[in-house]
Nucleic acid binder design. Sequence first.
DNA 1: CAAATGACGGGGT
DNA 2: AACCCCGCCATTT
Length: 108
Amino acid sequence: MSPTVSDLKIWQIVKAIPKGSILSYGEVARRAGYPKGARQVARALKIAPEELNLPWHRVVGAGHRISIPADSAAFKRQVRLLKREGFVVKGRRIVVAEISSLDRALWG
DNA sequence: CAAATGACGGGGT
DNA sequence: AACCCCGCCATTT
């Protein structure tokens, strides 16, 4: 598959997520101008060229859940990268202490 | 062309 | 929390 214009836009947005913060697939989709495109965001990340060095691990499911299949290598990789940035991860979940810090996590 | 798929989301049980 | 169900939609079967 070759990248579409929407893929480029999605990559651009993910690229701009600051270290230490996370966004949901749906949120990235909205910011890219595709309010119903959460699944397309997931696809765009999956096919993203490695050399773009996208911080794909900062994109999680709504409700702070890691959406990658828990048995995959990519899952473990995402957990490791998130912890490296200070997040507390329990199983497939990203724990956020306060409500206010939740907002901060959603965009620095 | 019809059916299945999925790194999704929101609601309900 | 753990499921199930349905809407959504580009891609792939």
